[in-house]
């Protein structure tokens, strides 16, 4: 089946892209790898009048060291990210997360920028036209109901990006550009826990770059993904954990969770969480319990909220045990 007609723009520069985005506003969708957007367009749940294709924007897929940081262009494919020697050497957790996305074909097409911006998912949203006609539209399809949480005032679609959890745990930042200028925000400030609008991207703004801070030395991290099958599936729960040697207590341990709410979220260690010593089993158990208690899953897609909560505890424990043993 062919897609509905749309205009297709291929800007050569970021400013040209921003110009187009400004011009067409909400009628436009930005496309990079298309692995998420095209599926939604086929379903007819996203019907842009024009597509702004970033593929031809110069230099947007570069992975390069800038000072002591590492910059990833938003257009770098997941395959590029996971195969990059710089990423593998300095932030192996990100390579791990990129490898966990979908399958090889999707990694070849999908980009890091697209994976971060991945539209929240829900059984009641990503469905074909005739399926949706069988019930009133949910929030995400322009209606006024959330079938995941009947009676709720908001949409509980699940954010299921893998790389965002790793980036969150790494303390990465994203550079956002618009006609008016640019801003760089930490990943945790980029996301919003709202199925309808899960990022802080402002109208006319584009995600241009991911910035990984520091040389990555003295850092260990891992991304664990629990999914139904060995390939293809989005995470039921994904947990990223990063330990920084010699850092202060607050930044020493960073844990991020994805697949649980409408955005990825950080699990914050308590203020008294010990620094400077190795992770003991007691500390790990305690952290797992904190994580389990902190998450408040609502969606019953695939599994019940209770089971999803359990999994968060298990995966946090597994991740920390792995880091402690490494």
């Amino acid at each position: 089946m062919r897609l509905k007609k749309f205009e297709h723009f291929e800007p050569r520069t970021l400013s040209e892209a921003c110009q187009l985005l400004n011009e067409h506003g909400s009628k436009a969708s930005v496309i990079a790898g298309g692995t998420d957007l095209v599926v939604r367009m086929k379903y007819g749940v996203t019907t842009p009048e024009c597509l702004i294709n970033l593929k031809k924007v110069d230099g947007l897929s570069a992975i390069s060291s800038v000072g002591e940081n590492l910059h990833l262009g938003a257009l770098a494919t997941l395959t590029q990210v996971r195969c990059s020697e710089l990423v593998q050497e300095r932030y192996p957790i990100l390579a791990e997360a990129a490898l966990a996305v979908g399958a090889a074909q999707l990694q070849n097409m999908g980009t890091i920028g697209g994976n971060i911006c991945l539209e929240p998912r829900c059984w009641y949203f990503q469905q074909g036209n005739s399926w949706r006609q069988a019930r009133p539209n949910c929030f995400k399809n322009g209606g006024a109901v959330c079938y995941m949480a009947k009676g709720s005032k908001r949409c509980y679609a699940l954010y299921c990006g893998d790389t965002a959890a790793a980036l969150l745990a790494l303390g990465a930042k994203v550079r956002l550009v618009s006609l008016g200028g640019e801003r760089t925000v930490p990943v945790e400030e980029f996301f919003v826990d709202d199925g309808m609008r899960h990022t802080n991207l402002r109208p006319g703004e584009l995600l241009a770059e991911v910035i990984l801070p520091g040389p990555g030395t003295g850092q260990r991290g891992t991304y664990l993904k629990y999914r139904k099958r060995g390939a293809l599936d989005f995470p039921i729960v994904g947990v990223a954990a990063v330990i920084n040697k010699g850092a202060t207590a607050a930044s020493r341990l960073r844990i991020a969770v994805t697949g649980v709410g409408s955005s990825p979220s950080l699990v914050v260690p308590p203020a008294d969480f010990p620094a400077g010593t190795g992770l003991t089993h007691e500390m790990i158990d305690r952290m797992a319990e904190i994580a389990r208690k902190q998450v408040k899953p609502v969606s019953h897609m695939e599994v019940s909220p209770g089971y999803r909560k359990e999994l968060v505890g298990v995966l946090v424990r597994d991740a920390l045990e792995k880091l402690a043993g490494a």
């Binding site: 059984w123 009641y124 469905q127 399926w131 019930r135 139904k228 099958r229 060995g230 390939a231």
Partner: peptide, 26 residues
């Protein structure tokens, strides 16, 4: 792996992503 999740006779998993046929890894 497989089952049709349904609600009032409507299949919530009518696609190969959601239905979950086992892959070669499974």
């Amino acid at each position: 792996y497989e089952h049709c999740v349904e609600e009032n006779g409507q299949n919530l998993t009518p696609n190969l992503t959601a239905y979950g046929l086992p892959t070669v890894y499974d």
